[in-house]
């Protein structure tokens, strides 16, 4: 059920008012908790406002891809759980769910968070890292919550041992990560640019831009929906992403104890 009128949003946006007195470039409250699922090799739950995303990591023995025989594999999947929103349905992954998984995956992959050559065991045997994103409650901006949760889960993940032809999941070592990446998602609502759109803002946004970056470099970008951005706008959002990501990186570091 649509709960806002365009008139209402126009008035708010033109005055620069958002829910909870947020400014255009303010995030909602963020909570990042690690290690909630001890059975998983790594896990973390990111809460942004009422949005809740849980990331779980499992690491299994597998064969390498034929084109990268000396590298481990990374697989990211996402479930937009039907319990998370009345707009999410039971069934095979929707285009939205697939886009979500792929955008988060690209940021982690190209941000060199993991060195896949270190996942090589012996000829024909590598580690596969399965990264699953569970959207438990939807209130906008699952992208940034997904990246935060996955980043923290990886940074605190363990890796099994391979001994005598068997996978051993006891006394596991820390999985090595070599970078911290975070994403910032912006929504274009009417003509305003807002970071971290909530569910109501996403209902009305015309275009969305997700920028995943580290301290100095951008690793992934994704423009979503039917609307457009001008290059000038994108430039300003890149600046904003580098600025906001300082906060987000701090949150990751704090949660992982580094």
């Amino acid at each position: 059920m649509r709960t806002l009128t365009k008139e209402y949003m126009m008035e708010r946006i033109s005055k620069g008012i958002r829910n909870e007195k947020r400014k255009p470039m303010d995030y909602r409250n963020i909570k990042l908790e690690v290690g909630l699922i001890p059975n998983a090799e790594g896990s973390a739950q990111a809460t942004i406002g009422n949005t809740k995303v849980l990331a779980g990591i499992k690491i299994d023995l597998s064969e390498p891809m034929t084109d990268t025989p000396e590298d481990g594999n990374l697989t990211t999947s996402a479930e937009l759980l039907p319990m998370a929103s009345e707009n999410y349905d039971i069934g095979p992954p929707t285009p939205e769910g697939v886009e979500f998984a792929r955008v988060v995956d690209r940021g982690i992959r190209h941000g060199n968070v993991l060195d896949t050559s270190k996942l090589f065991i012996e000829e024909g045997k590598v580690w596969s890292i399965f990264m699953d994103l569970y959207v438990l409650n939807y209130d906008g901006n699952i992208f940034d919550a997904g990246t935060l949760a996955l980043m923290a889960a990886l940074a605190t993940s363990k890796i099994p041992k391979y001994e005598d032809g068997k996978v051993v999941r006891e006394n596991m070592k820390r999985l090595e990560t070599s970078n911290i990446v975070t994403s910032c998602t912006f929504a274009k609502v009417i003509d305003s640019l807002l970071v971290d759109p909530d569910g109501a803002e996403e209902e009305l946004m015309k275009a969305r831009l997700t920028i995943t970056n580290g301290k100095e470099l951008i690793y992934a970008m994704q423009k979503g929906l039917g609307g457009v951005f001008m290059q000038k706008e994108i430039d300003s959002l890149i600046d904003a992403a580098f600025d906001k990501s300082k906060e987000l990186r701090n949150i990751v570091q704090k949660s992982t104890g580094d």
Partner: peptide
């Protein structure tokens, strides 16, 4: 009703999705 197990829920390997 839909009951489902998360692929990372068990002590063993990655569960079938």
């Amino acid at each position: 009703c839909r009951y489902m197990m998360a692929p990372f829920s068990s002590e063993e390997g990655h569960g079938r999705v």
